[in-house]
Design a protein around this nucleic acid. Structure first.
Length: 659
DNA sequence: TCAATCCGTATC
DNA sequence: ATACGGATTGAC
């Protein structure tokens, strides 16, 4: 592969002698292709998508060959490619376009996105022939699609996939749904049309479910699972299985959204509200947005799925970009458990001595009956560690800034609430819902629940599933299963009862998405219960008049999402508006914003203090101004980096943590 | 007048 | 990071 030869003997390739290269230098002002000459000896290997080494500003750096051209617009003389690292075309043209679009949208660099999209090379793996991937050896299973008949537009959607049409849907999965199997069926329909599929789930446990379902529906060797936990060799091996088009279907956690497949026909994201979908590395793209962009660019089908519905999912429906797939009320009634609220007493909840008081009698009774009937009981408790926020002491509405609707917090030891977004003090705060002027801090959840419940139900097995140790499944026998959100094991035959405790801690988080997130977690847990006809019941320990609780009781995620979106329109929050955050030392933030030619509609909020000696500014624009905003911020970053500004500034579009 | 050095800027 | 060009300085 080496193109090195004796000095001076290199000649350019006859045809398309120019290689357009994305160099591995993550500086915003160098975020554009650079042209190099292809030595004749490297002509064959220097195909679009290969890794190359080039001399750039005196240094040897890596890069990706984006395309070949006959001529270059560059005035100066071109240098030769130093070498083609390997002939493996790891950057698919579809992914190259996607990565550029994502970089543009998130005010980031192409190289940064490519680093997220393409796993590090493993030469030994690359030299091997791609093996047929291992999977559950089983003959292709049930006839695809029957399970989709329960949904109003379900059968039509599968038909569209089978015909290779770019159908886009937001799917509200029924409680108790074998969603992994439905997704596998959708994948099979798409594969049947000769197209590829990319499926993204939030964590390893969900991936296992999808992996098994795909094995059953597609048979062996038709898909790979890309797990973030894989070692570098296996990760690259599976990436190559997709990249070399050995499999039509890729399923995986976040990074799998970049997986190349031949003739992409469908992208799927399950439970798109999960915060694991927010990429923690620059430029911080969200998996849902990446996949929707991908579907848009590839003109393929998309499926945004979950028991819950996010504001973003709702927006896709309201703008007409996607169609709804949901079950009718009668079908829903047949699948849903009986759900009832029971008030909690905040005084008792705060008293560490009142252990059993956290289990109101309705919840206790529901659990007891389920255990007696021989069924397991799921108890969901929040994880500790949420940011303390403040809420009305009377009606518990989260306290929001009268000026910009940002969350109020208590700064320092004083009692004056201060907005976390715009920094204004709200000394005269009165609750807009009930008029009360009394405020209280929210409490965090407790982890002693397992022991407490052990005492509440003597003789019953108590199992826990949480961050440290996650249970996949529990048998259909009496047991109390205490789990944190996202770690709920599936129960064979469903839980007899699901108890949602300490909801207060979830609902009063100062996060913009607190209610949406609480709703999502409750629905995901409640979906594991048996149908009401089979004795399944859910008890949510929360005020029954709260909208999220109402939506849960009626199992109406659509109503709740529409309400949330309407509220965010009112308040100017994402996804109804676009927000960017700029975080860094004061001088740096000021410097960047001074250089930024922001859209005329841009509204600046802040500054507010951030970690360490940093501060944060928020910039709000209408959704339609997203690209001008990103472009302005990227350009301003470019000006700073060209000037060798040393103080770092972090730019995020639609930041995941809006406090 | 020329060479050594400094500074800013582009990096193909 | 490094390399190059134009400006600047200093010695003859």
């Amino acid at each position: 592969m080496t193109t090195k030869s004796t000095r001076g003997e290199r000649v350019p390739a006859d045809r398309l002698p120019v290689a357009r290269v994305c160099v591995d230098v993550p500086l915003p002002h160098l975020d554009r292709p650079f042209d190099y000459l292809v030595p004749a000896a490297a002509d064959e290997a220097a195909q679009p998508g290969v890794r190359v080494k080039v001399r750039f500003a005196g240094q040897l750096v890596g890069g990706f060959l984006l395309s070949r051209a006959e001529t270059s617009p560059h005035d100066g003389k071109l240098a030769y490619l130093d070498k083609v690292v390997s002939a493996e075309q790891v950057l698919d043209p579809e992914i190259a376009r996607l990565a550029r679009a994502v970089a543009d949208r998130y005010a980031g660099n192409l190289v940064d996105v490519l680093r997220l999209a393409i796993p590090p090379r493993h030469a030994r793996v690359e030299a091997q022939a791609t093996p047929v991937p291992a999977g559950d050896a089983a003959p292709p299973g049930p006839p695809a699609g029957a399970g989709w008949d329960a949904y109003v537009a379900g059968a039509a959607y599968l038909r569209a996939l089978a015909e290779g049409r770019p159908a886009r849907a937001v799917w509200a999965a029924l409680p108790g749904e074998d969603w992994a199997m439905r997704i596998a069926e959708a994948a099979a329909a798409t594969v049947g049309a000769g197209r590829g599929v990319v499926i993204v789930v939030a964590d390893a446990r969900d991936l296992d479910r999808v992996d098994r379902a795909l094995g059953r529906v597609l048979g062996d060797g038709r898909h790979v699972a890309l797990n973030a936990a894989l070692g570098p060799a296996e990760r690259y091996r599976r990436f190559l299985a997709a990249s070399r088009h050995r499999v039509p279907v890729v399923a995986g956690t976040r990074a799998a959204m970049w997986a190349p497949v031949a003739k992409l026909g469908l992208v799927v994201i399950w439970d798109d509200g999960d915060d694991l979908y927010a990429e923690p590395r620059a430029p911080y793209p969200h998996a849902r947005e990446v996949l929707l962009t991908r579907a848009q660019l590839a003109d393929c089908a998309a499926l945004v799925a979950g028991h819950a519905r996010t504001g973003e999912g709702q927006l896709l429906l309201e703008t007409g970009w996607a169609k709804e797939i949901a079950a009718g009320r009668d079908v829903l009634r047949a699948h849903a458990p009986a759900i009832a609220p029971t008030g909690d007493d905040p005084q008792l909840a705060r008293d560490p001595g009142a252990a059993i008081a956290r289990l109101p009698s309705l919840a206790w009774e529901g659990a007891r009956q389920a255990l007696q009937a021989g069924a397991p009981v799921l108890v969901q408790v929040p994880r500790r560690g949420y940011l303390p926020s403040i809420a009305c002491a009377e009606c518990r509405s989260p306290a929001r800034c009268p000026h910009c609707s940002g969350p109020l917090g208590l700064a320092g030891a004083r009692d004056v609430p201060v907005c976390r977004w715009c920094g204004r003090a709200a000394a005269a705060y009165a609750c807009p819902a009930c008029g009360s002027r009394r405020l209280r801090a929210s409490v965090t959840g407790a982890r002693r629940t397992a022991e407490e419940l052990g005492r509440a139900f003597p003789g019953v097995t108590v199992r826990t599933s949480g961050r440290d140790e996650v249970l996949d499944a529990v048998p259909a026998e009496p047991a109390v299963v205490v789990a944190t959100p996202g770690a709920e094991p599936v129960a064979a035959g469903g839980y007899g009862a699901v108890l949602l405790l300490d909801t207060w801690a979830l609902l009063t988080r100062s996060d913009l998405r607190a209610a949406e997130e609480a709703m999502r977690r409750w629905l995901n847990a409640a979906a594991l219960a048996r149908p009401a006809a089979g004795g399944g019941r859910v008890v949510v320990v929360a005020d029954g008049s709260l909208a999220a609780v109402q939506a849960l009781i009626r199992w109406d995620p659509a109503w709740f999402a529409a309400r949330e979106l309407a509220e965010r329109r009112e308040l100017g929050f994402p996804p109804a508006a676009r927000l960017a955050s700029v975080t860094g030392r004061t001088e740096a933030v000021t410097d960047l914003l001074a250089a930024a030619r922001l859209p005329a509609e841009a509204e600046l909020l802040g500054p507010v203090p951030a970690d360490g000696d940093q501060e944060r500014m928020l910039i709000r624009v209408p959704r339609s101004r997203t690209l001008p905003l990103s472009q302005a911020l990227h350009e301003a970053s470019a000006v700073r980096s060209a000037r060798k500004a040393t103080l770092p500034v972090r730019v995020e579009i639609d930041p995941a943590d809006l406090f």
